[in-house]
Simulated assay, not measured.
Amino acid sequence: MSVRAAPEAPSTHKGRATRDRIVAAAAELMYRHGVAGTSTPAVRNAAGVSSSQIYHYFTDKDDLTRAVIAFQTETILSNQAPLLATLDSVEALRSWRDVVVDAARRQNGAGGCPLGSLSSELSDDHRWARDALAAGFAAWSEAIRAGLDAMVDNGILRPETDVTALSFALLAAVQGGLVLAQAQHNTEALEAALDVAIAHILNHAAPA
């Protein structure tokens, strides 16, 4: 059986807009119904395109799902970028915590993390998805680590602080907290996980 060549990136504004609309529609459907529960006809109807347009921009459903992973990663980072870029004080750290909690609270904890949900569904059985999701989580962790690095540079945290480990801990608190928020439909566990992680970070505060 012949294998289709990977589609080239659209070269026109209209083409890019169409592709972006398809990815955004697929991302919303996969977030709500999972990858397995999202069909090509459903994406086609949600995006207002034809099936031939979908296959013009994407080789198959796996190719579209890769684009969704990239879209969700970019969306999360762009939404949090203003705070992550200034994560250089205790106040900024707590403000970032409040943004994460408020986003979950607006949905009563429902939905969970878009990347976390995709990881739970795909990572065990699809190496390509696991690699893409790991890269997305790595980018998120790196953005947090950069903020903690700034706290070291500003003298807020001690120079020997392991900011890489702390960034992993914060991200793990977010992911675990969102899973429990999804099950419990409240943000109590998410708030507790983040508050404990932040308290641990403050144990590394430099002497006044």
Score class of each variant (00 low, 15 high):
A173W: 00
A173D: 02
V179Y: 08
Q184L: 13
L133Y: 01
S141C: 09
G147D: 07
A150P: 07
Q184H: 10
L171D: 04
A138H: 08
F168V: 15
Q182T: 10
Q182D: 12
A139C: 10
G177A: 04
A169K: 03
A181E: 01
A132K: 01
V163A: 10
P159N: 04
A165N: 13
A146K: 13
V163E: 04
G176M: 11
V174R: 03
Q184W: 05
A165P: 11
G176Q: 05
A134E: 00
S141W: 07
A165M: 14
V179E: 12
R158K: 12
A143P: 05
A169P: 01
F137D: 02
E142P: 06
S167G: 10
D153H: 14
W140M: 07
A181C: 06
A138V: 07
V152Q: 10
A129N: 01
Q175N: 09
R158V: 15
R130D: 02
A139E: 08
E142W: 07
G155K: 07
E160L: 07
W140H: 12
A181R: 11
S167W: 02
A132D: 01
S167T: 05
L171R: 07
A165K: 15
A183G: 10
G176N: 03
M151R: 09
A129T: 00
G177Y: 03
L171G: 02
I156A: 15
N154G: 13
L170K: 06
D131L: 02
N154H: 08
A169W: 03
G136P: 00
T164P: 12
A138P: 02
L166K: 09
L166W: 06
A183H: 13
A143M: 13
T164C: 15
A146C: 14
A169Y: 05
R145D: 14
V152W: 12
E160M: 08
A135V: 05
G136V: 01
F137K: 01
L178C: 03
D153P: 09
I156H: 14
